[in-house]
């Protein structure tokens, strides 16, 4: 192995460790897996919810994985339509909820004090800047 490769690998491992310690990726992945395990069958909420599909789980996993260093860790959840959610909340009136659907769309809505924002974004492996700015403005 070339010395440059060794340095690259070391740098990558350091980044992974740092990312996990700040963002808590590993914890988030474990929480996500636990939620998916409980929501894989229809009716998981006691109110006839749709099952969470594997593509939805994969999309949520990729979104968490793509969050930048030092980013606040979201609270994870599921919705009755089978979408998985990432939620950031600093108070009842400052909250952003992002739903991941199986087709690669992110549907978001948030309260930012007196103002409201909502819409849909596409996700292809890179977190949309608009979404990062919304979380930072909470």
């Amino acid at each position: 192995m070339e010395f440059a490769d060794i340095l690259d690998r070391a740098a990558h491992q350091s980044r992974e460790l740092l990312r996990d310690s700040i963002l808590g990726h590993q914890e988030a992945f474990e929480e996500l897996a636990a939620i998916w395990d409980r929501c894989r069958n229809a009716g998981w909420d006691g109110h006839e919810a749709l099952a969470v599909e594997q593509d939805t789980y994969r999309g949520a996993y990729m979104l968490i994985d793509a969050l930048p260093l030092g980013f606040p860790r979201p609270s994870l959840g599921a919705e009755p339509d089978g979408q998985l959610t990432l939620e950031w909340r600093t108070s009842p009136s400052r909250i952003l909820s992002v739903s991941v659907d199986p087709d690669g769309y992110l549907h978001y809505a948030g309260l930012f004090g007196a103002s409201k924002r909502y819409g849909s974004l596409t996700f292809f492996g890179t977190v949309p800047q608009e979404l990062l700015q919304l979380v930072r403005s909470l």
Binding site: Q83, S97, S99, H107, Y108, A109, G110, K116, Y118
Partner: peptide, 14 residues
């Protein structure tokens, strides 16, 4: 529309 539903749900939950 899902985002509109979500916004309503957030405000109701608050």
């Amino acid at each position: 529309d899902k985002p509109a539903q979500k916004l309503m749900a957030i405000q109701i939950a608050s």
